[in-house]
Each structure stands twice: as structure tokens, then as C-alpha cells.
């Protein structure tokens, strides 16, 4: 009995000492945010806050929101809004999903640099990604079967694109699902008949070009001005108002220094 009490005391002390010297921030979710932007923000934050450690897992927005609901992350990264079913799950779990807009993004349509296509309409984009159109000749391109590359189903970009560009219709059965923006850009660059979509921070991959949609391409001005049709906010989600080190990191992300990083990585700042 005494031995158990002693062990508990030792463990409690060890935990208390550890928490003083190393604060760990767990961030999970969107690949769009988590592949480049958040790691860079984390490095800058660590430089100003020695002793802070980060655990970042970028496996899709769905995993980020789920992590807030099940309490396994301090911040959930998401490139889409939480779905009503996720909010419902959060309420049931006693959590309060609070969205914080950290940057804007434009979903760029990428094709091979060798593709002669000069532009697409919103209707043509819908037709291509739903499989209504399967050959480039149907949209003014060089004849050839269209190869579609999309994100996987846990991606916020995957569901955002369905909502923004496809009238919520299903993707074509032939669409190949890839884990991240960089993989999509890479595959499109290697395939003359390929088409895919990536966040603004990933639209300069070798061998690819951005296709204007209704004459507009994603830029800081067109995204902030909401003239580009596939523009969207990106989010941190927290359980209610962030506290402690998480609140500090959110504040840093929204600060001029953080937003400068947002811009340098290729996203559109909130102001």
C-alpha cells in the first residue's frame, strides 16, 4: 500500500516537472496546411518559445476534426468547414468545435505543361471530374483519355472541391485518389493527359501549368476578392477558445509574422 502511494507521488512529480520544462503541442489534420505552412510556423514559434515541442500529423482534414472530438490533438487543421455530422459528434462528446480562419487558399486546376488547353469553364470542370466528359477533345483539347487525379476521401480539399466545383456530385469512378497535393502535382506533371487540383501553395510543380477557370487564375488578389471560383478559407479547429500554448500558437499564426509566413509559403493571408 505504501509502495503504491510512493510510486504515485513520484509519477506525479515527474509529470509536473516535465510539463514545466517541455510544452508539447499536438496538431493534426489537413495535408494542405500541414505539409508546408504549419511546420514552418512551428519552427518559427519554437525559436521564440524554447522548450516547446510539436507533434504534427498531416493526414487530412477529417483526421484533424476527429482529433479535436476525441481529444487527441490541441489544434485540428482543416481546409474545409466541419460537417454537421462532425459537429453533432462533437456535441455528443461534450466538445465545442471552434473554427479560426488562418489563411485563404485557391484550389488550382493543374494539367500537364504539354497540354494545349487554354482554359476551362466551371461546367467543363464539373463534367471532367464527374466523368461526364472522358476525352480532352470534348473540352477543346488534343484527343486523348482524361486521367483524373484527386485527393483521398479524408482530405478537406477532396470534399471542398466536390462542393465548389462539382455540385456535390460524385467523382468519376476512374479518378485516382492520392494522399497529398505534392503527389497530385507530380503525377499530373508526368502525364500529358492528366488533370488534378492542388492548393495554391503547390501550383508551381515542374511539368504542370495552372488552367484558368472562366478566365480567372488563383492569385492573392482573386482569392481575397473572391473572384476566383474555387477560393476557400482554411482553418484551425480548437475545443472552444484555445488555451495555454495552443492559444499562443494560434495568436502567432494570426500575427503579422505568422501571416508573412502564410504568404511566403503560397497561401493568401487573412488581411
Amino acid at each position: 500500500m505504501k509502495l503504491k502511494s510512493l510510486l504515485a507521488m513520484v509519477l506525479a512529480c515527474a509529470t509536473a516537472i516535465g510539463s514545466v520544462h517541455a510544452e508539447k503541442l499536438v496538431i493534426k489534420g489537413s495535408d494542405t496546411l500541414g505539409a508546408k505552412l504549419v511546420p514552418q510556423l512551428a519552427e518559427q514559434f519554437k525559436a521564440a518559445n524554447p522548450g516547446t515541442t510539436f507533434e504534427i500529423a498531416a493526414e487530412g482534414s477529417t483526421t484533424g476534426i476527429a482529433a479535436i472530438i476525441d481529444g487527441t490533438a490541441d489544434i485540428g487543421m482543416s481546409s474545409r468547414r466541419a460537417k454537421s455530422t462532425e459537429v453533432s459528434s462533437a456535441v455528443a462528446a461534450g466538445k465545442n468545435l471552434k473554427p479560426i480562419i488562418v489563411a485563404y487558399d485557391g484550389i488550382a486546376i493543374l494539367v500537364s505543361a504539354n497540354n494545349p488547353i487554354k482554359g476551362l469553364t466551371k461546367k467543363q470542370v464539373e463534367q471532367i471530374f464527374t466523368g461526364d466528359v472522358t476525352d480532352w477533345s470534348a473540352v477543346g483539347g488534343k484527343p486523348g483519355p482524361i486521367s483524373i487525379y484527386t485527393r483521398n476521401t479524408s482530405s478537406g480539399t477532396y470534399s471542398d472541391f466536390k462542393e465548389l466545383a462539382m455540385k456535390k456530385r460524385d467523382y468519376a469512378g476512374s479518378a485516382q485518389k492520392l494522399a497529398g497535393n505534392e503527389q497530385i502535382a507530380s503525377e499530373v506533371g508526368k502525364n500529358a493527359n492528366g488533370i488534378g487540383y492542388v492548393g495554391l501553395a503547390y501550383d508551381k510543380a515542374a511539368g504542370t501549368k495552372v488552367v484558368p477557370i472562366e478566365g480567372a487564375i488563383p492569385t492573392v488578389a482573386s482569392v481575397q476578392g473572391k473572384s476566383y471560383p474555387y477560393a476557400r478559407p482554411t482553418f484551425y479547429y480548437t475545443n472552444g477558445d484555445a488555451t495555454g500554448i495552443a492559444a499562443k500558437f494560434v495568436a502567432f499564426t494570426l500575427s503579422p509574422a505568422g501571416q508573412k509566413t502564410v504568404t511566403s509559403v503560397g497561401f493568401v493571408p487573412i488581411k
Binding site: 468547414r81 466541419a82 454537421s84 455530422t85 459537429v87 453533432s88 462533437a90 456535441v91 465545442n96 468545435l97 471552434k98 473554427p99 479560426i100 480562419i101 478559407p233 482553418f235 487573412i270
Partner: peptide, 16 residues
């Protein structure tokens, strides 16, 4: 945009 998101989140929570 942020105010809009917060209202939207509140509405969704009520809906949920």
C-alpha cells in the same frame, strides 16, 4: 469572414 464562420459554427451546432 471570421465572424461569419463563428455564426455558421453556432448555427451548425444548434442544428446538430
Amino acid at each position: 469572414d471570421q465572424e461569419g464562420e463563428e455564426i455558421r459554427a453556432d448555427l451548425t451546432k444548434e442544428y446538430a
